[in-house]
């Protein structure tokens, strides 16, 4: 247990009368890719928000590498090694692809309380940013303003930003959302390449991608973990089949 990257115990959250997270317990080991699936409204994105710190849970426990992160604001969680990609693409539209990533490098390494030296000429920042862009095959688009990138390229840029943070745990909120089949394939390939380097929590509707990538899967229904295990176990869990997967897996 002690070596879990992320340990969540009995996490609870309600919006008024609606229980969105109902005693969720989850453990992600080093290098593990853990997928969370479930029907719409199961509370998957709410869970990501609580882990990253943009929503405050009502109760429970959350440890990142053994450290209690519950009381920390999002920026301090990020400093401990938590990175996330957003469901709705949220790269900085007026920044170039390179500058988007360089900002992440800047966040991780060194002080940003430097006021006079032009940041765009700092090789230290640019090199690492370029390396991250290369990993997601976006290096040839480095100077393009993010607003002008295609949807799939923006998703890839999201990944590059997360990579540049050199996270201990990466939260991926529907990285394939809204992408075409070709772009999906590309993102799956990138994720495959990254797998093992750090732990990942993946929320995704694309079942082909989930079963191709995940080491473990948790099924979330009405804010509750219905089942958790290897893809094989989950696939053969009758409760899961009944509640959610149904014909999708036949």
């Amino acid at each position: 247990m002690a070596d879990a990257v992320l340990l969540i115990e009995n996490l609870r959250k309600r919006f008024g009368g609606l229980v969105v997270t109902d005693g969720v317990t989850l453990e992600i080991g080093p290098g593990e890719l853990h997928a969370v699936i479930g029907p719409n409204g199961a509370g998957k994105t709410t869970l990501i928000h609580q882990i990253s710190g943009t929503l405050t849970p009502d109760g429970g426990r959350m440890l990142l590498n053994g450290a209690d992160i519950m009381p920390l604001p999002p920026n301090e969680r990020a400093r401990l090694g938590l990175a996330r990609s957003f469901q709705i693409t949220s790269v900085l539209p007026r920044f170039s692809a390179l500058e988007n990533v360089a900002l992440a490098v800047q966040a991780r390494s060194g002080s940003s309380y430097r006021f006079l030296r032009p940041a765009a000429r700092e090789a230290e920042l640019n090199d690492q940013a370029m390396a991250a862009l290369t990993e997601v095959s976006l290096d040839h688009r480095a100077d393009i303003v993010a607003a002008h990138l295609s949807h799939g390229e923006k998703r890839a840029l999201e990944l590059a930003i997360a990579l540049a943070l050199e996270p201990k745990l990466l939260l991926l909120d529907e990285p394939m959302a809204g992408t075409g089949p070709e772009e999906s394939e590309r993102i799956v390939a990138v994720l495959k390449k990254l797998k093992g380097r750090f732990a990942m929590l993946l929320v995704e509707h694309d079942m082909d991608a989930v079963f191709a990538l995940a080491d473990k899967i948790s099924v979330l229904v009405y804010g509750r973990v219905l089942a958790s295990g290897t893809p094989h176990e989950v696939r053969n869990d009758p409760a899961v089949t009944e509640a959610y997967l149904g014909e999708e897996l036949e």
């Binding site: 999002p74 920026n75 990175a83 996330r84 007026r94 360089a102 992440a104 966040a107």
Partner: peptide, 17 residues
């Protein structure tokens, strides 16, 4: 760069640290 980024998307800036 951080100051300009905060204008575009403060939530994003917080989640990268």
């Amino acid at each position: 760069r951080v100051f300009r980024g905060a204008r575009e998307n403060p939530t994003r800036m917080a989640t990268i640290g």
